[in-house]
Every structure is written in structure tokens, then in C-alpha cells.
Design a protein around this nucleic acid. Structure first.
Lengths: 346, 346
DNA sequence: ATGAAAGCGCTAACAC
DNA sequence: GTGTTAGCGCTTTCAT
């Protein structure tokens, strides 16, 4: 039972065959159990397997079968609880289908993203779940050229199957809530860890809802960001708050940003929600603490993952029709106490 | 550049060889670049590679070389930010060495733990990082029998290399701090997500420090736990707080538990730290928010991971001496405002 | 019910 | 500098 020394190598199917005096195929049949094998032969084989501690080599099997029991998960940032939980669910779901999950985290630059995806292609993963996507067309092209199914999970892209929360709707709900509380100067705050397609949808929801209410959306506010997201005019938080008529309500890109925002605001002497209301997105565990009590939009993580996984499995088994499938899961608006009536009347 | 249809299959090294009119070995040589190849041949081969979109098959390579570029990470619970961050660092570190990370999360029951580890063995991972371990000797035996190096990362076990935070010391520091603030009734609180060896060390630190100060340690307090950890006499939080002379300070197993604890305490009308002081462990991001401001013991995640990874890599390359290596990284005590002077004088 | 044989796609001697 | 060859450990017809 001790570790095998450097000299001895793992038992292979041949070793088992020799020890039990049968052929490789018979051993294989016993191991998988679909082809019938006489009980006494099977018993001998099983004994040999136990004695040698034989474990089939998944690599060899995959090579032969041309089916790999591994999927890749490209992650935005594991340090963000929303993603961590997403990945957790992914791993569980995928494991229940017999697949292993390879993670690629924080593909911050397009170059690393390509590298990591190249690794997944080399590994010949059966499929890829994209939780983060730079938008680089090459990435999708490479994956598709390799014949690897891809589904966006909380990533929206027309070229691939995807399942996302209805972020446009979600952010519209946030605006409606704030408007109902009397707010008119409602800004949108973008922080670090920006997934392009997600931000885009949320910003769009904010803008459209503001337009409907005939309110000015104005510039996006950034928090701790070196450069604003591409193609967007932005203003830094401090600058925004220094304005004569400063915002009375803020919708943050996600909960992590919202918490950071509240911290900054309060450190600057403002009270939340008395002076400014804040809304997050995701409903991470910390948002639920009484000391935080963040009004936010809850994403239905289990459902997002279930759908994305089902979609991916369908593609892997080639059971699904060819068209790209776009899926939108509704968010749930959770009102807590980081939002309140607008006290400014000007 | 579109996805390859079901009929056509991925290009192999043979396809590249044929198209460029050379042998497989030559293709292999230009791909890896260590054996010299004439420039014109190389150019032809590269052209063929580009045309066919050839990507070497890592499975075939691993099978042949008997070296797999994959490691397994067994995780306690990705939903715990401490573990999520740990895994994030692991993935980065491991990737920089050219390895892919396969995750196995929340191996709650011994049965699943064995299953998941069996999967890792089938995959013939080059090594395993144990971030969670039930203590089941079979798990380690299986891994060792398979010749797979294992290192405990934030998991302490004498049978394997491990690198852990000095939890005994950490918890002692926590007790010292509380004693200095005048506390005498200091309890230890265990919540969900219990990793046995970690809890054990921390409880031990608490007990020993209490003994040194000639204070009674008493029963462990549990929070939202169905059953107390094995071999421990415990009492539920509500019961502990209902006591005549209730605890004035609590040391929680980790930050997640500490946050939950503060929530429960305050929901019950107690103030933190005015009525009861609370100390956590880990220093997760939420602990640093001003609204939380949790006194805690910071674990040096980058260092833990760096050491564990270096150790694992050393074992994989068989470069390290045979003895089990035990590594302890000091925690850093971070005083914030969840702890304060004891107001009770009885 | 069992065995023989032909690969999966690659690497690594070893020849030329 | 380049080609030939023999596997890595497994699955999978196809015989028997």
C-alpha cells in the first residue's frame, strides 16, 4: 500500500490481463461491464485488478475514443464571489455528467486569453464554458476551428450559444426603483473586472430606462479604473461627486463594485442611503449581511449554470440543432436598505 | 475559418507531414524547436501547420511521454472567498509552469472525495494540491499508490508534504489580544465548511492560550451546524448566549463564520464590539470594508501557494529528498474594530 | 464468451 | 538534417 517506487510503474491493462490469464479485451470488458463476461473469468480479473491496484488510464482511452471527459471553464475573476459561485456550480454539474473541469482564471489581457484557450485546445477539451470573453473574434474562431463547442455563461455573444441574465431588464428595474424613490440624477458606476458584453447590456439598460423617464444619463462613472472601458466617455468618481449637483443615486456594475463604492462614499463623509442610494448586481453573500444590506439584482446562478451546461452537453453530443441559442434568465430585484428616498429637491 | 464539419477531423501531425512533404519527426522537431531543422524545411512545415490549423494533441503527447501537464486541486468550498482566492493563485502559479488545473470542489462527503480523487487518478494528473482533506487514509493511500505527489495546502497531515498557516500561533495571538482588552470569557466558534486539520490547530491554539492565562476554555460554540465536529463537545450559539455569564469575546473559525456570527449577534440585539468582541481568520476582502472592519488573522495566500506549488513541482520532477516537508507560514494579526475593551466586570 | 490485431496521435531512439 | 520505427495504454471490430 505504500507509494510505488520509482522503478515500478503503474499497472496497465496488459499487466492485469497477464496476471489473470486472459486477453486485454476481456479485461476491458470486465472493467466497463457492457459486454458479457463469464462470472468466473470476471472474478479472476477483478482479483487481479485489486491486487495490482489497476486504474484505467483516461488519457489512453480518450486518445482512442476521440472523446475527452474534460471541459474548460474560462473565468473572469475567481476573487469575485459571483464567479466563484458560478464555477462551483459548473464543476458540480459537469462532474455529475462525468466530466472534469479545467479552469483558466483571470484572462486579463487578450494575449493571456489566447494562450489559455490554446491550452484548452491542446488538451482537446470536449467543450468550453466562457464566463469571461474579451470579444476577440480569434478566440472563438480558434475554438470553432478546433471543433470545440463553446457556450457563453454570463457572456453574451452572437456567434456562440449563450445563457445570460437579462441585464438590460435588470438595470431598468434598478432605475425604475430609484425613480420611484424620487431620484433623478442616477449614474452608472463601472469598476474593475469588467466583462465587456455584460457591462454593455447593463449600461444599455440604464440608458434606455433613463430615456424613458426623460432623464439625462450622462457620463459613466469609473471607480479605481485606470482607463474607462473602450468606446465610452467616463468620469472618475471623485470628480463626479465634486460636481455642483452631484448624483443622488448610483447603480454599480456588480456587488463587488457596489461595496467598494459604499466604502468610498462613506469614507468621504457621505451616508448611504441618506445622501446617496446604491444598487448592486449579483447578490453575493456579503450583500445580504445586515451591516451591508445592499439593494441588488440577484442572478439565478443555479439556473444559469444548469442551462449552460445542458446546452454544452447537447452540443458535445451533437444532439442540438445548428442555430446559435440565445438564453435569457430573468434577474430578481432585491430591495434592501442601501436605497432610500431622494432628499435633494433641486 | 469556420468550424470544421462533422466529417472532417482535426489535422494531425501526419497531415502536416504529408502536406509539407516531410516526415512526422521533422514536423515534431519544428514544432518543439529543440532539434535543428533547415530553415526552408521549417518554413514549409510552418506553412502547412498554419494552413491546416494544426494544434498538437496534448493527450497523445502525455501518453507517450508519461508526463501529464495537469494537476488536480481539491477544494473545500469555492464559495468561501479564502479558498476562491487560494485557487486563483494556484491556477496562475501552476499555469506559469505550463500545467492546467483541474478542480474538484466541495468534496463534502468522504464518498465524493474518494470519487473525485479517483477521477484525478484516472486522469493521471501530475500532482494534487489538497486544500481540503477529510483525513480518510484511503485517499492518500490511493494517490500514493498511483505515484502521484500530493501536497496539503492549508491542510495539515503528517503523511504528506504540506504548507499551512501557523494556526496555533494565530489563534494564540487572537486570545492574547482579547485578554489584553480585559476579556476572560472567550469562546471559539465553529461554523460550516469545516476542514478538520485546520479547525483542530486553531482550537488547539485557543485552548493552549487560555490555559496559559489560566482561563477556562469550555465548550466550543457551533453556528448553523447540524452536528459538532467529531470528537468535540459543543454548544449552540443561542444556548451559549443565553447563559448567565455569557461570553464577551468570540474567536471564529474563519471570516465567513465571523461575518455570520456578527450578523446573528446583532440581530439578537447585541452590539459588536460593545457587547461582544469578534475575531475572524483569513482576512477576506469583505472583512476590510469599513462597515465590517473585522479584526482577523490574515493568511499570506500568495506565499502559501508559492511554497505549495514549488513543493509540488519539486516532487513531480523528483528533485526533492524523500522526507515529508512540513511548512508553516506565519499569519498576520490585523486589528480592526470588531474587538474592543471588555465592559463586563463580573 | 474470448482473443488477435489494428490503430488513436504523438515522441524518441536510432539510422541514414 | 531528416526519416524509420517502435511503442505509450487503451478501445474496437472482427474472428474464433
Amino acid at each position: 500500500m505504500s507509494g510505488r517506487s520509482a522503478s515500478q510503474r503503474r499497472a496497465t491493462i496488459v499487466d492485469v490481463a497477464e496476471l489473470s490469464g486472459v486477453s486485454k479485451s476481456t479485461v476491458a470488458n470486465v472493467v466497463r461491464g457492457d459486454v458479457p463476461v463469464s462470472e468466473e473469468t470476471a472474478a479472476r480479473v477483478r482479483a487481479a485488478i485489486a491486487e495490482l491496484g489497476y486504474v484505467p488510464n483516461a488519457l489512453a482511452r480518450s486518445l482512442k475514443q476521440r472523446r475527452v471527459a474534460t471541459i474548460g471553464a474560462v473565468i473572469g475573476d475567481l476573487a469575485n464571489p459571483f464567479y466563484a459561485e458560478l464555477v462551483k456550480h459548473v464543476e458540480h454539474r459537469i462532474a455529475s455528467d462525468g466530466y472534469a473541469t479545467i479552469i483558466c482564471d483571470a484572462v486579463d489581457t487578450p494575449a493571456t486569453e489566447r494562450d489559455r484557450v490554446a491550452m484548452l485546445i491542446e488538451q482537446r477539451v470536449a467543450g468550453v464554458l466562457l464566463t469571461y470573453f474579451s470579444g476577440d473574434p480569434q478566440v472563438i474562431a480558434d475554438l470553432q476551428a478546433a471543433g470545440i463547442p463553446v457556450v457563453g455563461l454570463s457572456v453574451m455573444d452572437d456567434r456562440i450559444d449563450h445563457v445570460v441574465t437579462d441585464d438590460v431588464r435588470g438595470t431598468q428595474l434598478a432605475v425604475e426603483h430609484l425613480v420611484a424613490l424620487g431620484h433623478r440624477r442616477i449614474v452608472y458606476v463601472v469598476g474593475a473586472g469588467t466583462e465587456q458584453s455584460t457591462i454593455r447590456a447593463r449600461v444599455q439598460g440604464w440608458r434606455s430606462a433613463m430615456r424613458v423617464r426623460e432623464l439625462r444619463a450622462g457620463r459613466i462613472v469609473t471607480l479605481g479604473l485606470e482607463r474607462p472601458p473602450s468606446g465610452v466617455v467616463a468620469i472618475e468618481l471623485d470628480e463626479a461627486m465634486a460636481a455642483r449637483r452631484r448624483p443622488t443615486a448610483m447603480i454599480a456594475q456588480n456587488d463587488v463594485t457596489a461595496l467598494e463604492l459604499i466604502n468610498r462614499l462613506e469614507a468621504g463623509g457621505l451616508r448611504v442611503p441618506a445622501d446617496v442610494s446604491v444598487i448592486g448586481y449579483d447578490d453575493i453573500p456579503a450583500a445580504r449581511l445586515d451591516r451591508i444590506s445592499l439593494t441588488t439584482l440577484r442572478q439565478d446562478t443555479p439556473r444559469l449554470v444548469e442551462r449552460a451546461a445542458a446546452l454544452l452537453m447537447g452540443r458535445i453530443d451533437a444532439a442540438l440543432p445548428g442555430d446559435v441559442s440565445a438564453n435569457r434568465v430573468p434577474p430578481q430585484f432585491v430591495v434592501r436598505s442601501s436605497t432610500g428616498r431622494c432628499r435633494t429637491t433641486d
